[in-house]
Amino acid sequence: MTPDIEVRNLHLRYRDSVAIHDLTFTLDGGKIYGLLGRNGAGKTSLLSVLAGFRLASGGAVRVGGEDPFDNPRVAPQTCFVRETLDFVESVRVRDTLAFARRFRPYWDAGYAAKLVERFELPVGRRVTALSRGMRSALGVTLGLASRAPLTIFDEAYLGMDAPSRYAFYEELLADYLAYPRTVILSTHLIEEVAALFEEVVIIDRGRLVVHAEADDLRSRGAAVTGPAEAVDRFTAGLTVLGEQWLGTTKSATVTGPLDEPWRREARAAGLELGPVALQDLFVHLTKDREGPR
């Protein structure tokens, strides 16, 4: 019910470009993963291969130990909700839900009805007549109620207003706890959703930048606050992601080898150590984009 994912030396080439270069990582089943990357990093291409939407050009991908491409055992276990939705648009919302009920083996009609109510989806309206946000709400409804052992959301909530997005995050977490499965969220709204991630995979230009537990990744950075002189002394040699001043007090967001002795020493010197935003670390890890591809 919670498939592991194994990616080994994955390559994906398009006619005139390479989307994924020699990517290797393993995701254990039954966790919520954040897949982060800048525009054009290869996120959608990678997810398309995992979901069997695309054939890899090289390397190997295994979902629950099997090649996902056109595999009749893996395909019904996978739900890939994309930014542009995959359903017949001329039909009504209720027909789309009925279609999913017929084709999704783990579909929960009661839960779908609850989500329809929560997102205020007009079931009698044609999909073409829905606003961008409503279409996204329909997409996440289909993704959540499918209860697919591997559920992937790729920027699926674009256009949804903030209350609807937060409703989605709440529903995702609650339903995941009740029905554990492997969930991958690809998003640019990192801070909004960061609390959900158990592990984070960051890719850039088709290559793996980092794969780590979210807490471990956060611990690679810290916000150091205190007297400016002490802050400067303790952050010397570290990578400074950002600085702020208030009078003689300074706060510096840093990353580097922040081991426990360093933290103890900083606290002993009267400095406050706060968590660093995942988004700041992401920006730092992917900022050298101007280099050769």
Partner: peptide, 16 residues
């Protein structure tokens, strides 16, 4: 044009 992406997105293989 209209049906294949919808079926594949709902867990049906191309062969099916």
């Amino acid at each position: 044009m209209l049906r294949l992406p919808v079926y594949v997105a709902h867990g049906v293989t191309r062969r099916q």
